[in-house]
Nucleic acid binder design. Structure first.
Ligand SMILES: Nc1ncnc2c1ncn2[C@@H]1O[C@H](COP(=O)(O)OP(=O)(O)OP(=O)(O)O)[C@@H](O)[C@H]1O
Length: 723
DNA sequence: AACGATTCTGTTTTT
DNA sequence: CAGAATCGTT
């Protein structure tokens, strides 16, 4: 076991402000600071310091934003103190653990299933079906989103129905039915995990008091992205002790779409007026140019409290902004940039490519593959979202929780075994009318006497399989899964499929899942229930395989909290970043700006930002113009290359802006356009020949007509489907 | 009930 | 373009 070599050095590794924050052990505390100022480092050391001062490690709860961040912090604390038993959780994983212990207080069994968004969607569809509601007016996804918004704000179904709007009222009724269905299936969706835990802590003083004794100190990292329920939760967890420390940065709040409530900062100060606020101002990560450009961008946000941030890291190179003709060109330049970075001695593991949407990774991946540059895609829901993985998980969940209808419905006929939709629904209805867990019903040999002989045979066969799995419930999870794969013929099923039509991936994913389970068996204690608890909250972020000498590809959201020597931020275009779906309100637009700023501030030494004038999106080529954020970078230490106006220079290589690819090149009468000053308009006439940019356009705006030379007009197309 | 062919539909970010 | 939903044939 490693003991710390120099216990006294725990606080020595911090600057004075950080040290102040780390050494305040008791009472409320807020650490408010910009990117790269060592917030995470500070609370890690604070935890280590508390342990050194005699606080039991297991009495400390630190909440991080991702499992990965939790793991890393645990590793650092272990390194500093030799202790690894600090409770390091995400809000969700803490609540799962909490509910596994305390759910009986609400009369619920602790073997509940956890539904991800896909499962929740299935359940909503099921409810809509049962209520025979019009699927046209109620799209399942929309309904689920609305329910989610209620849940995040703690609005119960009854209250939601209290409205005069009949459509909303109907959705609220679905919400009620959905909640009931969750209880019947003994399942929790992600929001439920938080809500149920909150309910228990709020309504049961004894439980709250016990947990306050158990957890004497609570710390929350990335506080800017907590929602109201999460804040209420930590408030209750520290109601008696008052030892709540939060750290965050308003300028890095990028999850409002998931209910994140930056107002929690104010709420905290209102609830704890005596709380010291420690501000950290020295950035230890980035060079002056990078930090300056990022500061210049973020200062454009109206809703923001300005703060000081400085660095003494000198620059090697300026921040580069480069425009390309299209995404293909952009991708090739990215490959070249990576090679150049490597030639400079930057290790590939410390190079990252960021993008706004997952779809943007495709052309980059293809090019890197071609060029033989190893890469990994970090995060996303690729693996756990796969059909074959979800099927396997559904088997496991149904075995652990016999009431779990959604999981059962998923696998009852997987692989195909002659149990169609009709039989399936009959079984589900039968269980519902008898008020019996569907798993018990299925295992009952006399349950299906009224069914057709064919259906009965198939169901009996299925029941036999279930019983074989039951006898393995206490086995290592890897063995159980192998048993399932063999007995059901599911492995064979995919093997056949893949040999027929190409892709080996599904079959390999099954293998990966088995490996994952075996790893669990080897490294952790517990069987099926414990495995499910863990796996339900895993994301690809947590299982991204290590690959030597690989550069990292990820979304801007995933990049939060990380740092890289060199960053290439791609797709900086109008409609992409800021994304069209969130730029219609000022709040949305400013969050996009924060997102851009988060991406920029991940870079330590090198930052390249790219955009493409045309992108193959959706199988179609569509035009794009540079992101307005590019104009906000300032001009100190920032170089612009390429694009319609400036000389076209790629990262080291010349790329001409091709007039034909310019979105306005084919402008003609009737083309809808937009201008930054005059708003929406339509081209009512074009003067000049051909398709060039030197033509003049007569544009009808809301407040009148104007004649503009296309090349210098600053006009943008209102629709991106131009060609 | 199963499977293949066709049509449809939709793309923001994820615990 | 790709994944889901629907359709039509066996
Ligand atoms: N006092 C210090 N001395 C040396 N390096 C430091 C110090 N404080 C922080 N650092 C380094 O600065 C970098 C950023 O630290 P950290 O990740 O803790 O910052 P953060 O405030 O959590 O960042 P962000 O909010 O951008 O995710 C890390 O590489 C860290 O090791």
């Amino acid at each position: 076991m490693d003991r710390p070599a120099f216990p006294d050095s725990i606080l020595d590794a911090l600057n004075p402000a950080q040290r102040e924050a780390a050494s305040i052990m008791d009472g409320p505390l807020m650490v408010l600071a910009g990117a790269g100022t060592g917030k995470t480092r500070t609370i890690t050391h604070r935890i280590a310091w508390m342990i050194e001062q005699g606080v039991p490690a297991s009495a400390i709860l630190a909440v991080t934003f991702t499992n990965k961040a939790a793991r890393e912090m645990r590793e650092r604390v272990r390194h500093l103190t030799g202790r690894y038993d600090v409770r390091l959780n995400t809000f969700h994983s803490f609540c799962v653990m909490f509910l596994r212990e305390e759910f009986p207080v609400l009369g619920r069994a602790p073997d509940f299933s956890i539904y991800d968004d896909g499962d929740a969607l299935s359940l909503v569809k099921r409810v809509l079906d049962d209520a025979s509601l019009d699927l046209e007016t109620h799209k399942a996804q929309t309904v689920l989103n609305k329910i989610g918004r209620w849940k995040m704000r703690e609005v119960p179904p009854r209250e939601a129905q209290d409205t005069s709007d009949s459509l909303t009222k109907e959705v609220a009724r679905i919400y009620e039915a959905y909640d009931r269905a969750l209880v019947e299936a003994n399942a929790c969706d992600f929001d439920d995990l938080l809500l149920q835990a909150l309910r228990i802590l709020r309504d049961h003083d004894e439980v709250r008091a016990r947990w306050n004794r158990r957890l004497t100190h609570v710390l929350v990292d990335e506080f800017q992205d907590t929602n109201t329920v999460q804040y209420a939760l930590v408030q209750l967890l520290t109601a008696d002790t008052g030892n709540l420390c939060v750290t965050g940065d308003q300028d890095q709040s990028i999850y409002s779409w998931r209910g994140a409530e930056p107002g929690n900062f104010d709420q905290f100060l209102e609830d704890h007026p005596e709380a010291p606020i420690v501000r950290l101002e020295q950035n230890y990560r980035s060079t002056k140019h990078i930090l300056g450009a990022a500061a210049s961008v973020i200062s454009c946000n109206r809703y923001r409290i300005p703060k000081t941030l400085w660095t003494d890291i000198e620059d090697a190179e300026p921040v580069r902004v480069v425009g390309f003709v299209d995404d293909y060109d952009e991708a090739r330049a990215i490959a070249k940039a990576i090679r150049d970075f490597e030639a400079e001695g930057i290790r590939p593991e410390t190079i990252a490519v960021f993008y706004r949407t997952n779809a943007l990774s495709l052309p980059v991946e293809r090019t890197l593959l071609q060029e033989g540059i190893p890469y990994i895609v970090v995060g996303g829901l690729e693996f756990f979202g796969r059909q074959e993985v979800k099927d396997l998980l559904a088997y496991l969940r149904f075995l652990a929780n016999p009431r779990d209808v959604v999981s059962l419905a998923r696998i009852l006929n997987v692989p195909p075994r002659g149990i169609g939709k009709k039989t399936r629904e009959q079984v589900v209805t039968l269980a519902a009318t008898q008020g019996r867990p569907i798993g018990d019903l299925l295992r009952d040999p006399d349950a299906f006497t009224d069914f057709t002989p064919r259906a009965r045979a198939a169901l009996t066969d299925f029941a036999e399989k279930l019983e074989r799995f039951d006898s393995r419930r206490e086995s290592p999870v890897g063995d159980l899964i192998n048993e399932i794969l063999n007995v059901t013929g599911y492995a064979e099923y995919w093997q056949k499929k893949s040999s027929k039509s190409g892709s080996l991936e599904p079959y390999q994913n099954l293998g990966q899942f088995v490996t994952l389970a075996q790893e669990f068996d080897r490294l952790q204690k517990g069987r099926l229930p414990e495995f499910l608890t863990q796996v339900a909250l895993l994301t690809d972020h947590d299982r991204t395989e290590r690959r030597d000498h690989a550069v990292s590809l990820m979304t801007l959201h995933t990049s939060k909290g990380l740092e890289f020597e060199a960053v290439v931020l791609i797709g900086a275009e109008h409609g992409m970043l800021p994304h069209a779906m969130s730029s219609d309100s000022l709040e949305g637009f400013e969050e996009e700006r924060r997102l851009f700023h988060v991406g920029m501030t991940r870079a330590k030494r090198r930052l390249v930002i790219t955009w493409a004038g045309a992108r193959t999106r959706f199988g179609r080529r569509s035009a794009a113009t540079p992101s307005p954020f590019l104009d906000e970078l300032g001009d100190v230490g920032v170089e612009h290359h390429g694009g319609p106006t400036a000389e076209a220079v790629a990262i080291g290589e010349r790329v001409e802006w091709d007039d034909d690819a310019h979105p306005l090149a084919q402008a003609r009468k009737g083309t809808p356009v937009w201008h930054p000053d005059w708003g929406s308009g339509e081209i009512v006439g074009v003067q000049g020949r051909g398709q060039g940019l030197d033509r003049k356009a007569v544009v009808e705006f809301e407040d009148g007509r104007r004649v503009l030379v296309l090349r210098h007009s600053n006009l943008e197309l209102r629709e991106d489907d131009v060609f």
